[in-house]
Amino acid sequence: MRTLPQPHPEDFDLAAVLHALGDPVRLELVRRLAKEGETTCSPEGITVPRSTLSNHWRILREAGVVAVRTSGKARLVTLRRNDLDARLPGLLTAVLDELSAERNGRPTPLPTA
């Protein structure tokens, strides 16, 4: 199986990361990775076609949000939290906190001036 290109942390682009996080399916994939750790490329409960799911993983990988490694015939995906936090401090935490607040039905506090 061929190795998939993945950017180095110093090459992360804020616009690409924000684009990758700007889709509800990709946000759900990131939320699951943050909660559960490593997963296969076809996690249970995601109800999109496999080709669409592959495209979502590609966008996340090319932006540097996830890393993909091969284990036998399986591709395993992990969240690049440390790399993201080093390059874009606080971004992933803010996104995951917002997702958690939305899931729990709590209003999101507005920033103070």
Rank of each mutant, 00 (worst) to 15 (best):
L21E: 01
D97G: 02
S42Q: 12
T39I: 08
E44Q: 13
D11I: 02
P5I: 06
H8A: 15
P24W: 09
C41W: 07
R2F: 11
G72W: 13
G90M: 09
A15F: 07
P5Y: 02
P111S: 09
T112C: 00
G105P: 00
G105W: 01
R50W: 14
S42G: 09
P24G: 13
C41T: 13
T3H: 09
P43W: 06
P9D: 02
M1C: 05
I59S: 04
L79Q: 06
L76I: 12
R81E: 14
A74D: 15
W57I: 08
L33Y: 01
L110Q: 12
H56L: 07
V48P: 12
A74T: 14
P107K: 13
T3P: 01
A101W: 11
L88S: 01
I59H: 08
G37Q: 06
G72A: 15
R69Y: 12
R103Y: 02
S71V: 10
R106M: 08
A20Q: 00
V77M: 03
D97I: 06
G45C: 08
L92H: 06
P89C: 01
R32I: 09
K35V: 04
T40I: 07
P43D: 09
R81A: 14
R61K: 13
S71K: 03
R69P: 10
L18P: 01
M1P: 07
L60M: 11
V65L: 13
A113T: 13
A74L: 12
N82T: 14
L60S: 11
R106Y: 03
P9K: 05
T39D: 12
A63V: 10
A34S: 11
L84W: 00
G64T: 13
